[in-house]
Amino acid sequence: MENLIKNNSIVLLIIIGLPGLFAWLLTSVNRQTKANLVNHYGINSQVYCGFLGIIIHELSHLVLALIFRHGIQSVRLLKRPHLHPENETADDLALGYVNHT
């Protein structure tokens, strides 16, 4: 019984722990990279360096919304983020969007 618990713990650590650690590591590297880009080259540098990835990302949202028959309200595959929008709502930092219902 003790051996079974030990083996299951090791398997859970491998199945959940390693992917979780890898996801955390990638997230922290991603956040630091974006912060460095914005600090050195301005907020629009994210668009200039990653436009192809942003377009592919938004297209994936669009395809899934179409597959699941969501009502598409508006799509913008690429847009420049605005730190100070015209109205007084929250900052508009989106790089693209698919609005659906």
Rank of each mutant, 00 (worst) to 15 (best):
M1F: 07
E58D: 01
I67W: 05
T27P: 01
F22W: 12
I15G: 04
V63D: 02
T101I: 04
N7T: 07
L25M: 07
E58A: 01
Y48L: 08
L25E: 06
G17T: 10
T89G: 15
G17F: 12
N99A: 12
Q46A: 06
H100L: 05
A90T: 13
K6H: 07
L77Q: 11
S9R: 03
F68T: 15
L95N: 01
R69E: 12
H40S: 15
K34D: 08
L66S: 06
I14A: 15
H40Q: 15
D91T: 14
N3Q: 06
N44G: 00
S28I: 02
G17C: 10
S60W: 08
N7F: 03
L59M: 14
H70P: 02
Y48Q: 08
A65L: 05
L83S: 09
R31A: 09
L4V: 08
Y97S: 09
L13W: 14
A35N: 10
V75H: 06
T101Y: 08
V11A: 14
S45M: 10
L52P: 00
F22K: 08
H61D: 00
V11F: 13
T33G: 01
H70A: 11
H40M: 10
P81F: 11
T33K: 10
V47Q: 02
L21F: 15
H61G: 00
F68I: 09
P81W: 13
G53A: 12
I15E: 06
S74K: 15
I5P: 02
Y97D: 10
Q32K: 02
H82P: 00
V29I: 15
F51S: 10
T101W: 04
T33F: 01
E2G: 00
H84D: 10
S60K: 12
I10D: 00
L66A: 06
G71V: 07
V47T: 12
R69M: 05
I56C: 03
G20R: 04
S60G: 11
H57T: 13
N30M: 04
I55M: 13
Q46F: 02
N8T: 12
C49M: 13
R76Y: 03
G42R: 07
R76F: 02
L52C: 03
I72F: 05
L64Y: 11
G96E: 05
Q46K: 07
A65H: 11
H84L: 14
P85T: 09
N7H: 03
H57V: 13
L4Y: 05
T33S: 02
S45N: 08
L26M: 13
G17R: 14
N36K: 14
R80E: 03
A65R: 11
R31S: 08
T89L: 10
V38H: 00
P19E: 05
